[in-house]
Simulated assay, not measured.
Amino acid sequence: MARIINVPGEFSKIGDALGNADAGDTIKVARGTYNENITLVMGVILKGEDPLTTIIDGGRNGPTVMGTSGAEMSHFTVRNGLEGILCENAAPYIHHCYVMDNHATGIGAFISLPHLRNNVVYGNRWSGILAWGAKSLDAYIEHNVVLRNGYSGLALKGPTNVVARNNIFMENHYYGVFADPAAGQTKVEYNNIYKNYYPFN
């Protein structure tokens, strides 16, 4: 039967709770700062108590969060990783998170695209969201605020075919949205793109 697992009530670390969770379980994480690097688990919901005060700090020891297909994560601040959230051929659902102050990309997606909704991606040293060779017909980048990142708000590299809609890309240090020619099938629609370094993109 599905369980609710509490952190730090039952496990002091989020990673330990994930290691003891099964598909269908929900992990609820109380406010606080958790200094660890975690990997999501298929079928497990990971939910913080409050997105501003429930913090996962990666300590620059690799990605703060590694994505897994079929996982769900919400209501966290994800900070101080090499990447904030890294999804390699994995498509989790990430929503209502702050992804900030990571050394490289805030959210990186390679091959497959996570569903990114209602996140704030802020102040990462490279792009806010990077999709490289990512293709998805049923996952979207939507309703996110992506601002003040070191390169582009959204970078689309390689043969990428995704949908980015209803986002705000603001005050990024190069482009609001960068798309290389191989990403020509991507749909970028109904976004607000302004005050980026290159105003035409």
Score class of each variant (00 low, 15 high):
38 I>S: 07
38 I>H: 08
38 I>L: 09
42 M>G: 12
46 L>V: 07
48 G>K: 04
48 G>W: 01
49 E>S: 15
51 P>V: 06
56 I>A: 02
57 D>C: 02
61 N>Q: 11
62 G>P: 02
63 P>L: 08
65 V>M: 09
65 V>R: 10
66 M>D: 11
67 G>K: 04
68 T>F: 01
72 E>N: 05
73 M>V: 14
76 F>S: 02
78 V>G: 07
83 E>L: 09
83 E>R: 12
86 L>P: 00
86 L>K: 11
87 C>Q: 00
91 A>S: 14
92 P>N: 06
93 Y>D: 11
94 I>K: 05
95 H>M: 11
95 H>F: 14
100 M>Q: 15
101 D>W: 07
105 T>L: 10
106 G>A: 08
107 I>M: 05
107 I>S: 03
108 G>Q: 13
110 F>Q: 10
111 I>T: 15
112 S>V: 12
112 S>Q: 12
113 L>I: 03
114 P>A: 10
114 P>F: 02
114 P>K: 03
118 N>T: 11
118 N>E: 12
122 Y>S: 14
123 G>L: 12
124 N>C: 09
130 L>N: 09
130 L>S: 10
133 G>K: 08
135 K>H: 15
135 K>Q: 15
138 D>Q: 05
139 A>C: 13
139 A>E: 14
142 E>G: 06
143 H>N: 15
143 H>L: 10
143 H>E: 09
144 N>L: 02
144 N>F: 04
146 V>A: 08
147 L>A: 11
148 R>P: 00
150 G>D: 00
151 Y>D: 13
151 Y>S: 13
151 Y>G: 08
152 S>D: 15
153 G>Y: 05
155 A>H: 10
157 K>H: 07
157 K>M: 12
158 G>A: 01
158 G>E: 00
160 T>E: 04
165 R>S: 10
166 N>I: 03
166 N>C: 06
166 N>V: 11
167 N>R: 08
168 I>F: 03
169 F>P: 03
